[in-house]
Design a protein around this nucleic acid. Sequence first.
DNA 1: TTTTAACACGAAAACGTTTTCGGTTAATGT
DNA 2: ACATTAACCGAAAACGTTTTCGTGTTAAAA
Lengths: 336, 336
Amino acid sequence: MKQKVTIKTIAKELGVSTSTVSKALRDSHEISTETKDKIRAYADHYNYKPNNLALQLRNQKTKVIGVILPKIVHHFFSTVINGIENGAREKGYQVIVCFSNETYQSEVDNLKVLSNGSVDGLLVSIAKETLQNKKFNHFIDLVNEEIPLVLIDRVIDSIQCDKVIVDDIGAGYKATKHLIDRGRKKIAFLGTPEHVNVGLLRQNGYAKALKESNMPVLRERIIEIDDEKDVKPQIDRIIKEDIDAIFAVNEIYAANAIRSAKENGLRVPEDVAVVGFTDGLISEFSTPSISAIVQHGYTMGKQAVELLIERIENEGETFAPRTKVVSSNLNIRESS
Amino acid sequence: MKQKVTIKTIAKELGVSTSTVSKALRDSHEISTETKDKIRAYADHYNYKPNNLALQLRNQKTKVIGVILPKIVHHFFSTVINGIENGAREKGYQVIVCFSNETYQSEVDNLKVLSNGSVDGLLVSIAKETLQNKKFNHFIDLVNEEIPLVLIDRVIDSIQCDKVIVDDIGAGYKATKHLIDRGRKKIAFLGTPEHVNVGLLRQNGYAKALKESNMPVLRERIIEIDDEKDVKPQIDRIIKEDIDAIFAVNEIYAANAIRSAKENGLRVPEDVAVVGFTDGLISEFSTPSISAIVQHGYTMGKQAVELLIERIENEGETFAPRTKVVSSNLNIRESS
DNA sequence: TTTTAACACGAAAACGTTTTCGGTTAATGT
DNA sequence: ACATTAACCGAAAACGTTTTCGTGTTAAAA
């Protein structure tokens, strides 16, 4: 990199002190218009830009917030980032994004680098592996250091911080209720293993709706898909069972269910209705298009960043952790 | 934020100098094992973490690379980030990602904050609006300051820097050739306005394949979809024309084309074959699934970050700009 | 006993800013 | 003519590190 022009070089070049240059550039009244003009002209001409690192080191404020998400190639998280970005920009904050790739180690690493003073606060959605291990010490340490932290979507109760979650129980209930209202009697649930707590909550909503209509919650109609590789065979299996509807816990599973159904000569929605979770592009462009719970990722991201900035800018006053619940809608399309 | 423990506090607390603490923590031979142990114990206990900003300010190296992309909710760019992330991690670099949302102003703003010393180098894919305005001064300034820069996918020739692009002409050619081989005679092209140069290149490939087979390149079979809102009506129009195949410049257009075809009672691929660009989830889960050019976003990201890091670590030696061309494959599915 | 060498540590500069506290000059008021 | 006050500017500290160069001990060698 080329030798950058700093306040020092300007000062030396113009025969004034660094203080004068600094003040001139910040338009202080202490400096005469004459010297101001001179300094400004020089700075302009040589394209002076203040060094952020130095500023941040001095101010002990970075005006940037760090985000750690499990994965990037994922519609929901993309929209969350979008919301964060916009919320942050409004308040004059920068956003830097890292990904844990669903692994514990990456999460810890990212946390370490970001909590070294590079950011004023953190937004994170916990990695699957971490959820599974139940190792949360890196987060506990964070709150002990009083670094502002807001958890998004994938949260755990024992961490004392602000949280933004979706009403997963309600969403599971809504989706199931919708299928029941459509006259379906044998509704299967396509979920993830227990440790991903949002999956469990959605399952609770599913069970709640069934019970309310005096329908049995049958173990064999609930599948927990463990390995990403096993999606297809497991769905193939359930589709051949005696069912007339499927509530899938995400978009991919829903799309796979439809494909399996078609391959087995079933019509959607006539023979088997399908409702998904996460309303993304797949749901929209699938044939038939898929009814799905729309998670308001944008809203969640925006709310989260607002909570965070509030914490950051009121440091000192330690008020109690807050939790925002963002509700979700069912977007009814052709598959149900 | 709580009062952080720094080298200074350790020094004061233990009655030694900051130099000693620094050296002890970096395991210098100059320090006796005795004091080393004492200092390490203290640092451990109080969870000392070196302040990144201070380090970076001193070293004039941040070990982070900045990425500016047009949008996040986009499969291709997601995979690019993935490649960048992994490539960077291998070399011990952090990645921070910003988005221009396809606007010129955001691009300039992001560039400004990142080029303030926060990053060692930049990876960017140019925003649509910038491409349209043809205002590239912010990039020119960057290369004048000798800040390492690598352009990805959406590049322009007048910027003297490393570039990673896909073989858009070849890809357009492959897709069109495939349709011709399938016996199609009247192939339409669904593209973007000229200023997005990748669109133009793909169109050139399309034309090349047609000419090679002595087929006419008809103006009325080429549509440039300008506004994102106009997608549907424009596609509806072309689908009613006398055509038997469509080559769409991206996934969304391809999916829309299929939907339009079905709505007009046409069978895919019997009546009209469809090939898309960007092989993402939509292509996979659409019915019929869509044949598509797979852009190797992951590879591009990885190559780009490798070029960049090479520049960063060999600063001084100014070697000529290099351009890497990543080829693409056609993934043949049901729609053709 | 004196010289030398090894060892353990500290002072200070440097990275690029901002800000507080003076200090100098000139103009103004009496 | 003297005191006061503006107006303008500079010195230095501070943010948290690392590193170079000294310097003071101590122990070994001469």
